[in-house]
Design a protein around this nucleic acid. Structure first.
Length: 362
DNA sequence: GAGGCGTGGGA
DNA sequence: TTCCCAAGCCT
């Protein structure tokens, strides 16, 4: 074999040596030699699904202070759990998290299963999270293949197959590299490498512990991995949102159905959200017959699969008003307790600002 | 297997 | 502005 084409094999030891020097300090990560709390590991992994570390940190701290144990979480009312999650997104995670805590408490004596298969059977725990918790919390030799690991592996081995089809191949590569010792550190090291060195754009190949064995780096094509099909943009939907403020300061709100978009979260009443929504007839969709004032600037929000434009309509109601069926007037002082998603925070803020008496210039 | 499912930040 | 995303799961 010609020397020029030979490439050294990637070794777990090189990655672990790098990890020992550059591991990140994170709120859910323990010091070397310490035994992690599976509850904290699990909760952090759920929060980190498709969510940045920056966004998760404050939520994690608050969540752990509010629900210090899996039993405490299991015993909490679901509204409280949803409120603690409000703003983090992907709310089915919170519903499944709560269901998982109840299952662990009721059926496993408050102990998380210490195997991938056992974990995988719990709600909200898929292939990645089962591997991550098994490896990190219990030091099991499990593969935790997330987006970081997919990127590292497709570059390291120049895997041409596109995601998600390439997942099984990637997983095999990870398993082949898994060290006998420190599988938990290996899992975290792989993710740290992907997050800090093997980044999507401008990867720092020059200081990568695997720069020698990396096939993409050798070819200079690292940024073209992983291969994946471009996703199509969604069609903008439109609708009307109704901010009704009672004279005593209470706001008319309701809770969305438990399934689907923003399931189980709070909202002000709105029309349907449709691509062909006709704003002229918005009053027909109002929860209350009154004189609605239409705000000029709509609230814009972008979901994963479609952009949304909600036109806000505002009105005041007499202090004696009763809420329509399925709705409630929440007092001003209790608004913070409502599990409003970010979209609704924008709507409520815009509506209340318009209803406030005009103030003199700042 | 492809689509539903949030949000805020960086290039 | 616009795009892409960031430690995925469920159906």
């Amino acid at each position: 074999m010609p020397l020029a084409t030979r490439q050294p094999a990637a070794k777990a030891a090189d990655l672990l040596a790098w990890y020992d020097r550059h591991r990140r300090s994170l709120p859910w990560r323990v010091l070397p030699g310490e035994r992690p709390d599976p509850y904290r590991v699990w909760a952090s992994e759920i929060m980190l699904q498709q969510t940045t570390i920056t966004a998760v940190k404050p939520y994690f701290e608050r969540f752990m202070a509010r629900f210090p144990t899996v039993e405490a979480l299991a015993a909490a009312p679901s509204e409280e759990v949803m409120q603690a999650w409000a703003g983090l997104g992907y709310y089915s995670r919170a519903r499944n998290l709560h269901a998982c805590a109840k299952a662990v408490t009721a059926s496993h004596g408050g102990r998380f299963p210490d195997t991938e298969a056992g974990l995988r059977a719990l709600p909200g725990i898929g292939a990645y999270t089962a591997g991550a918790v098994a490896a990190i919390a219990f030091d099991r030799p499990a593969a935790a293949v997330d987006g970081n690991v997919e990127r590292v592996m497709t570059r390291l081995f120049a895997i041409e197959a596109a995601l998600p089809g390439a997942k099984p191949v990637i997983r095999e590569h990870v398993l082949a590299l898994l060290p006998m010792a420190r599988p938990g550190d290996f899992a975290q090291a792989l993710m740290d490498l992907g997050a800090t060195i093997c980044t999507p754009r401008n990867p720092a190949c020059g200081i990568c512990p695997w720069r020698e064995p990396c096939r993409a780096r050798t070819a200079g094509t690292q940024e073209s991995y992983p291969r994946k099909a471009a996703k199509k943009a969604g069609v903008t939907r439109y609708g009307a949102a109704f901010v009704l403020l009672r004279e005593d300061g209470a706001l008319l709100v309701r809770t969305r159905p438990n399934k689907g978009l923003l399931g189980g979260m709070a909202e002000v009443p709105t029309s349907d959200w449709r691509a062909d929504y006709e704003l002229d007839g918005a009053a027909q969709d109002a929860p209350f017959v009154t004189r609605w004032r239409k705000l000029g600037t709509p609230v814009r929000h972008v979901f994963t699969h479609f952009p949304l434009e909600l036109t806000v309509l505002v009105a005041k109601a007499p202090a004696t008003s009763q809420a329509p069926l399925g709705m409630r007037f929440t007092p001003r002082g209790k608004l913070r307790d409502e599990p409003f998603p970010s979209l609704m925070l924008k709507v409520v803020e815009a509506g209340l600002a318009a209803l406030r008496p005009p103030s003199s210039a700042p």
